[in-house]
Every structure is written in C-alpha cells, then in structure tokens.
Design a protein around this nucleic acid. Structure first.
Lengths: 256, 256
DNA sequence: AAAAAGGTTTAACGAACGTTAAAAATTTTA
DNA sequence: TAAAATTTTTAACGTTCGTTAAACCTTTTT
C-alpha cells in the first residue's frame, strides 16, 4: 500500500522532471559553464529541425530578454516571475515551463549578461598599449561607455545584487558575479605590463571596477546628485572625466 | 530483477534532484504600491505623552534597532515587517502601532542612520589640515573605519537601496540618501582649502564616497574576492591602503 | 488521418506579505 | 480601587508570490 504510494509519487516526480525541457543550452553566450545533466532527446530535436528553431527560440529568448529587464530594475527577491511574464506578454506559468524555478531563470540571465560583458571586456584591450597610459585608458573607457550604452543591464544587475546579508542565504548565481570579478581582475593583471606590485594592480583594478559599476549601474542616482540626466552626453562625459581623473595617476606609475 | 534496477535508478535520480537547490523561494514577495492613508490617531498619541517616553521608546527603539538590522541585510522590498518583528521578539502588528506603514519605519531608520553618519562625518575633519594631505587623509580614513566598525549598517543600507529602477516607483526616503550625499560633498568642498577646481573636488569626493560605500557596505563581497574575512584587520587594512592609494595623488594635487 | 509530443493557457495551491480590527493585558488617571 | 487610556496580542483581511496540475491548442510523427 504505502510502497505503491511512494512509487507513484516518485514516478510522478521523475515524469515531471523528464517532461520539461529545462536547460536547453541555446546559443551559449560565452559559456562560463553549462548544465550537463540534460536530455539528449531535446537537443537532438533542436539541432535536427532548424526550421522550427526560429519560433522555439523566440519564446525562450523573449523570456530571457524580459527577465533581463526586470532583474536589472529590481533586486532578485523583489523581482517576480509575474513581472517577467507581463514584460514579455506571456502567461507567467509559461516561464516555469522553460525555467522550472526563478533561481534558474536568474542564473541564466546572469550567466548571459556577465558572459557578454566579459567577452566584450577582453576585446577592449586590443591595441591599447601602443597608445601609452593616458590615451590607452581613454580608449578603454570609451569602449566601456559604448558597451554600457548598448548593454545597460549588466552593470545594474550586478550592482543590484552585490550586497548580501551576512547571516542569511545567498542569491542564486552569486558565485557567478564573484568569479566574474576575479577573472576580470586577473585579465587586468596579465594584460598590464607590470612595473608595480601585483597588489597595487589589484587595488587599481578593484577601484576601477567599483567606480565603473557604480557610475554606470547607478547612473540614475549619481546623475541626479550632479543635477544631470542619466543618459545625457554630459553625464557620460563626467563619468569618463572622473574615471580618468582617479585612475590615471596610479596607472602611469604602474606602467611607468 | 529489472524492476529493482529501475527503482534503484529512479531513486538515484530523485535523490540527485532533491539535493539541488532549485526550489523554495526562501524570500518574500514584494508589494509595490504603498498605502497613503495613515492614521493620525497614532501620531498624536505619540507626541502628546512625553513622560512615558522612556518606556515607550524602549519598545520603539527595539523596533528601530531590529529594523536597522533587517534593512541592512535586505533591500527595502525584500525586507519585511515580519522579519523585524522576529528580530525584535515582538508580534509584528505591534510595529504598525508605532509605525503605521513600512515606508514610515524605513524612513525613520534611514533618517536615524544617515543622521548619525553625517554628524560623525563632520567631526572627522577636526585637526586634519595641520597634518598635510597624506597624514590628514590617513587620519580621516582611520576615523571612517572606526565609525564603520561601530556602525556597520549605515553604508550597507545606503548601498542596498542605491540602485533604482528608472521607470518604476522610488523607494521611500530615497531623497534622504540623495540629500545626504549632496551635503557630504558640500562639506568636503567647503572644508578643503581650494587649489583645484570645484569640479575636481567633486570628482574626488564622489569617488571617495563611492569607494567607501562599496568597500565597507559590500565588505562581504569584496573581502571574499580578495580571499579575506569581511571583519578582519587584514581586510580593513586593505581598504585603507586602497583608498589611500587611489585618493592621495589627486588630493595632494588639489591641496597643493 | 490518427496518435504523440510539444507548447500555451487556465485555474488553483500554500505561503508570506502589509495592514486592520478587536480583544486582552497593562499602565495611568481619577 | 474603579475608570480610562495605552500598549500588546490574536485573528483575520485581501494581495502577491512561486509553483503545480490539468485542460487546451498546435505541431510533428506515425
């Protein structure tokens, strides 16, 4: 009796799980890591029939896009699946069809957004060191600003979920943010021809990242303090001037 | 035989699945709109009888203290009245007796915490300019670190609620934060004997504040990236070193 | 054309939320 | 000490939350 009940419950669970096309690694943005426990069945179908892919992806992508917007407006626990559904013009349970839990959706958005940022960031170093510290930094910041104009969400999402309660539970995907920062810092350290100590480079890059995240992620805030409009050229110029002003002296010293 | 094998496999799968932290949104939902109809009854009572204030405040203060803790762990919409009640060992509706709405409680906490910070901040300038830029800045940062050790909440609360959605409703008391920053910046400008342009001082103080807020308000985050403990002397030393490192060159230039 | 599978919508669940109202307990006033 | 006022507790309300189940289309497979 009891055994039969238990088996039934288990079967239900398994069936439910196997039914849903969870993680479908569609167009991995930068692929920090992908889930490995997925069913080949779905993947096969997807790669087999490409004429359907366009439509299929459309819903999933609509969700991710909307989620990116919502999660860049509200911290994790304040954002809701229903907001995402509304933003995507979709019935909200459909989101659970593609992403069984809110945590998984958030992680996917985070992974994607951070991946884009990281990949772009790598390219910002191209042809920088021939320019010397001043023009090199200037170009780097220009590229950063340009990216932040077309991808205003990454820095906001990170900043929104950066502070965590000490005692309580940590946000899903929090390690993604940490790893991202570590890797970014590492890139700097490896990319900059050393003349200063590693710890000095660490201080500089941490400060750079912190200022960038705050000035661009909390642009509404800083701009309003300065009496400017968040997206105005005036404010972007102030951001660049400020970052040049703060970073350049020590950068010169480090590069020599 | 086969059945037993299948059951075993299923159990393994289920166990694996149940181990994963998908589910269970541990945290609360949000309420966007705020009610504006509050009862004058309560406010009148509060201000009328002052001789009972000592005892009354004891409950009231317990609430504010608990609320300060909660609001420094969770952003406004993620924090809840019930958390505060639990933290204060109080039935949560009692909170509504002293603070008719969550917004009013938050504003009070914000006002108090920001007030403490601002007042302390004014005293940090005492006897600074005889020391010159380097030792002066050092002493100022020491005072800041000391304050942040005894009042770890102010910077966290500010940082937690700093980013705001552009389109959506603004957090109650948001203007308090903005005004606080403006005033802080003004203090700097008036206190520092000018040799540089006002706009340079503005850049410097904004950067200083931003770094301080992030390093001290998101200490868990930054410390973990550096492989340190948030409250360790090692991390506090890193914060001081970093801020000296970043601020000093331009400060010297401005003061001359 | 029928069956199967995939995708979407509808309805509902249990839990947590802010807030309110009224009862109960406590303190103050008379 | 009795009455009045204040404080605290209990119970409940209406919402919103994440998630689930089942019905309902739509597409694909057989």
């Amino acid at each position: 009796m009891v055994a039969r009940f238990i088996v039934k419950v288990i079967l239900t669970i398994v069936k439910t799980i196997l039914t849903k096309p969870w993680q479908l690694p569609i167009m991995p943005p930068m692929v920090i890591k992908q889930h490995q426990s997925q069913k080949t069945r779905h993947r096969k179908k997807q790669s087999e029939s490409d004429h359907r892919a366009a439509f299929k992806l459309s819903t999933r992508e609509k969700i991710i896009e909307a989620a990116t917007t919502v999660f860049s407006d509200f911290p994790y626990y304040a954002a809701s699946i229903r907001m995402v559904g509304k933003e995507a013009n979709i019935d909200h349970p459909l989101i659970n069809y593609y992403f069984p839990t809110k945590a998984l959706l958030f992680e996917e958005v985070l992974r994607q957004v951070i991946g884009e940022y990281y990949q772009a960031h790598l390219e910002w170093f191209d042809g920088l060191f021939e320019l010397g510290p001043e023009q090199g930094l200037s170009l780097y910041i220009d590229r950063l600003l340009e990216f932040s104009k077309s991808h205003p969400n990454a820095l906001r999402i990170i900043l929104l979920n950066l502070v965590q309660a000490e005692g309580s539970d940590i946000i899903p995907g929090y390690t993604l943010i940490r790893e991202f920062f570590k890797k970014t810092m590492q890139t700097f350290i490896e990319a900059i021809p050393l003349k200063g100590s590693v710890s000095d480079i660490q201080k500089l890059t941490t400060s750079f990242n912190t200022l960038a995240i705050n000035f661009l992620g909390a642009n509404t805030y800083h701009a309003s303090i300065l009496g400017m409009t968040p997206h105005s050229k005036e404010y972007l110029r102030w951001v660049k001037d400020s970052m040049m002003f703060m970073i350049l002296p020590r950068l010169k010293q480090i590069i020599g």
